[in-house]
Design a protein around this nucleic acid. Structure first.
Lengths: 233, 233
DNA sequence: GTCGGCCTATGGTATATACAAGCGCCATGG
DNA sequence: CCATGGCGCTTGTATATACCATAGGCCGAC
């Protein structure tokens, strides 16, 4: 066993969380309890839990105990990241459910956004992304078939549309508009939220070398998703 | 001296770095050296340096020593704009209503965000910004008085706090977190919206040369505000 | 019933100590 | 000359202990 004790405790706790045995808000064993379970000193347990807390996995309250942090994933305002990678980076489990993936005639609005002919067809994929079993993003994506003719052959439970598009049409530019909206019935059902829960909607257009590759409407439950950006002017 | 020893050591090291006295690659004093300087135990120094290392400020090599980390490039095209200018640019009328502007003791949360002592006081300004008479932003701002001692003397109906801070403490870095939330009663009343109207909340921290200048919570009615960013990766 | 103080469990910090492990230097011996 | 091992420095980890601060429940006094 090469890795130090505190690392083993961290791994133990992270596994409980990512396996869903300890859900957000769950009170985990106290330092003294873990001290007994792992037969190490309290300082070692303290270090493990303190680090997990600073990494955002746990939430500690003096006098009360240590809780599994609420799911408030933070994603980037400035970079386009694949949600699957983001979730994996947090040590969580990602799963995608494909609602549908097909070729359909464009609406006038989408034609304008994708800069394609009004009577052409585009690919449209609708997926729900889950983090540890909780739906965190409804992805409704329109793709210009000229840039990704094989898109519909992809198994989206293994590779996200976003990741595939990065591969076949490297990102040259992006535009995002962020807003808060009440969810429609479709989003409520797929994200398993109530009508009163606000949603964070990101409308994103991405460009490759020679034009608009995709337009995506990403709907997130307000309580489970945040966007973050840090920058120097 | 409210803050713990390890935090003081962290602050000391960060100041040396941000002041440019210790440049990237510089070998900083060893744990034992700092132990003597600060008259604390080695474990305390170890914690301070270990945390700074995990936060990316330092780089440690067993057997060699602790070095100031190389610069990690952060690029972005995002800008912090003064809302008054934004509204003026759209050809609309801006008006600000000052709800209050005073000095008050910090909460623990704000103390941590502003990186000030837990029992100190900070300036707090609460304003509502109107575009053509319609409320579009509730601004709740906490300011470190050290950077803007004369803040409360400003007439905020003529110059926004944000604009004043740009003048007296030039922006070196910023961090924003965006989320969608239901408005609380206070926001509902000031923004004149219903409970079911989602809000877009931007939490923004801004840095000057030598520390966190302000923390602002900006609440916008979802139907009247959007954030947009366009960028190249 | 209500208020206030006490008790206990929790996490937060600080210390002294110990040993492990990585790196560089240098003396010693071939 | 070079190789090797010892030594001293560094950071990395682990422990036992102590005391502080906070939250919440409990119980008695009023």
């Amino acid at each position: 066993m090469a890795s130090p004790h505190y690392a083993k405790i961290k791994t133990f706790v992270k596994q409980r969380i990512s396996a869903g045995r300890w859900l957000p808000g769950h009170l985990i064993p106290s330092e003294n309890e873990l001290t007994r379970q792992f037969k190490v000193s309290r300082m070692t347990v303290n270090r493990a839990l303190r680090e997990l807390s600073s990494e955002g996995f746990l939430h500690r309250v003096q006098g009360l105990g240590t809780f599994v942090a609420e799911l408030t994933p933070v994603s980037s305002l400035l970079k386009i990241r694949d949600i699957r990678e983001e979730i994996a980076e947090r040590g969580h489990r990602h799963r995608a459910m494909v609602k549908f993936a097909l070729e359909e005639p464009v609406t006038r609005e989408v034609a304008a956004l994708l800069e394609v002919e009004p009577r052409s067809t585009v690919f449209r994929t609708v997926l729900v992304h889950y983090e540890n079993g909780v739906p965190v993003q409804l992805e409704d994506r329109f793709v210009n078939p000229a840039f990704a003719p094989d898109l519909l052959k992809i198994d989206f439970t293994r590779e996200t549309p976003s990741h595939y598009l990065f591969r076949v049409a490297p990102l040259a530019e992006a535009e995002q508009v962020v807003e808060a909206c009440a969810p429609d019935a479709f989003a409520r059902r797929l994200l398993r939220i109530g009508a009163q829960e606000p949603c964070l909607i990101v409308r994103r257009r991405t460009w490759g070398r020679s034009g608009v590759v995709a337009y995506a409407v990403l709907t997130h439950p307000g309580s489970r998703y945040r966007l973050m950006g840090r920058f120097k002017p």
